[in-house]
Structures are given as structure tokens and as C-alpha cells.
């Protein structure tokens, strides 16, 4: 299930943030988007989810148009989203957050079992409210909630931001498992080491435009690209 974005423009009110972005995410591959703060990475993911309307261009999943759909219809097409800052339903329990994640697929027990096998720590916290979890556990829950949707495409917005190394390793392992299962992963990430470890392709964004889209193998020996577009 390939997600294809062609000449996408979007923004907020009078401000245009995305200028003709074209991008492709393939099944079983991790496509990474990098760029400085304000480059438009998060807006791109929100636009893919229908949370920020597209002004022009197309978004298709296996040739079926997603642009113009109301936001609540997008996850029904198999796209899940882990927003920056997690945005969990804090007063709801872990089990209830996962149930919200599985709403559109009918909360299949086998999906929940698979998700809890990936993040066994959540199994011990099912009756705890999400707001009382540690930062790492909250991030696990944010990803687990999205996985309850049994997605074909997973959008992750800086999933390792502010986490301790052991948690980062756990989340990276989860991404590797998802990739092996054939999920198309779109990862917005600032950490170069994580990108080099996980990504198959890297697209660099500058001021709402994708200025370079390269295979990660070519980037391993090219630190200049990261310095130029990300500043690290």
C-alpha cells in the first residue's frame, strides 16, 4: 500500500506552509522526513491525516484519493498517526486509549494481543490513567494506540523526542518490527543516528519544500546533507 503525495500545498489561514510537496512511502520501508524547526514536517503529517486541509495537490493510498476526505475518514483507509507530544487522552485509562485506537477496526482481540506483545509493559498498566504514565510509557502508549488501528501506513512525529536511551531503543525496535510486517512508516525525526539506523529513504524539508529525497545508503558517508538541512 504505497502512500503518494504529489504537489501538495497547505497552510493555516493566510499562511502557506507546504509548497508543492511530493513524497512517497512504500510498504515495508521507513521513509524519514528531516528538516529544521518550522520546515513544515508536522504540518505535512497533519495534512496527510486531513487535520489541516490540502489547498492543492493530491494524496493517494494505492491510487485511491485521500485528499478532501473529512479527517475522521482518513484512519478508516488504514492510516494511523502518532502526533508530536503524544496527545494521549490523559484522564482515560491505558485500556480505554487502546480501545479508541481500535475503534475503526472494531477492536479485534488479536490486534490488541499483538500490540501488547510488542509493548508488554502496557499490559501491566491497562487500568492506569494515561496521564500517570512515565514519558517513555506514554510514548509507547501513543504508538500502541495507533497500532490498534492495524494500519497500512503509520505516521510518526518525533516519537523519541525527550526520551531516555532505553526507551528510544524500545521504540526503535518496535519500528523495525512494523517495517518487517510490511507497514509503510513515515517518520519525522531530528536524531541523525536514529535516521541512519531506521530509514530507507530520507527527504529533507526546507521552508515547506522537499529539497532533497535520497536513499539512506548514500547519506551514510555524506554528513554534509544533515549539516546543511538539519543543522547537526
Amino acid at each position: 500500500m504505497a502512500l503518494e503525495v504529489v504537489s501538495l500545498s497547505s497552510g493555516y489561514g493566510p499562511i502557506t506552509v507546504l509548497h508543492g510537496v511530493s513524497f512517497r512511502a512504500e510498504p515495508g520501508r521507513v521513509s524519514c522526513i528531516m528538516g529544521r524547526n518550522g520546515a513544515g514536517k508536522s504540518t505535512l503529517l497533519k495534512c496527510l491525516m486531513g487535520l489541516v486541509p490540502a489547498r492543492s495537490g493530491t494524496i493517494t493510498l494505492n491510487g485511491v484519493a485521500l485528499h478532501g476526505l473529512p479527517a475522521h475518514e482518513v484512519p478508516r483507509r488504514g492510516i494511523a498517526y502518532v502526533p508530536q507530544g503524544r496527545r494521549l487522552f490523559g484522564p482515560l485509562t491505558v485500556a480505554e486509549n487502546l480501545a479508541i485506537g481500535g475503534l475503526v477496526t472494531g477492536n479485534r482481540p488479536e490486534t490488541l494481543h499483538r500490540v501488547l506483545t510488542l509493548f508488554p509493559r502496557l499490559r501491566e498498566r491497562l487500568t492506569q490513567t494515561a496521564a500517570t504514565l512515565s514519558g517513555g510509557e506514554q510514548q509507547m502508549l501513543a504508538i500502541a494506540r495507533a497500532l490498534c488501528l492495524d494500519p497500512r501506513v503509520l505516521l510518526l512525529d518525533e516519537p523519541t523526542e525527550g526520551l531516555q536511551p532505553s526507551m528510544i531503543a524500545l521504540i526503535q525496535e518496535a519500528i523495525v518490527v512494523l517495517k518487517a510486517r510490511g507497514v509503510a512508516v513515515v517518520l519525522v525525526e531530528q536524531r541523525v543516528d536514529a535516521v541512519l539506523k531506521l530509514a530507507d529513504r530520507v527527504a529533507f524539508m526546507v521552508s515547506g519544500r522537499i529539497v532533497e529525497d535520497r536513499d539512506v545508503s548514500g547519506l551514510r558517508a555524506d554528513a554534509d546533507a544533515f549539516r546543511t538541512y538539519v543543522g547537526v
Partner: peptide, 24 residues
């Protein structure tokens, strides 16, 4: 109930609720 859960999730964060298929 499922409807009550959907209402409580919408109460907490309607934008995130939308991204999980809830017709706000």
C-alpha cells in the same frame, strides 16, 4: 459504553479524536 468512551475522548481532545476515526 462505547458511545460514552467516544464522548469522553472527544471531551479530552477533539483533534486527536478525529485522527482515530471519531466523527466529532
Amino acid at each position: 459504553t462505547k458511545a460514552g468512551l467516544i464522548m469522553r475522548a472527544t471531551q479530552v481532545d477533539r483533534t486527536t479524536a478525529r485522527s482515530f476515526g471519531i466523527n466529532v
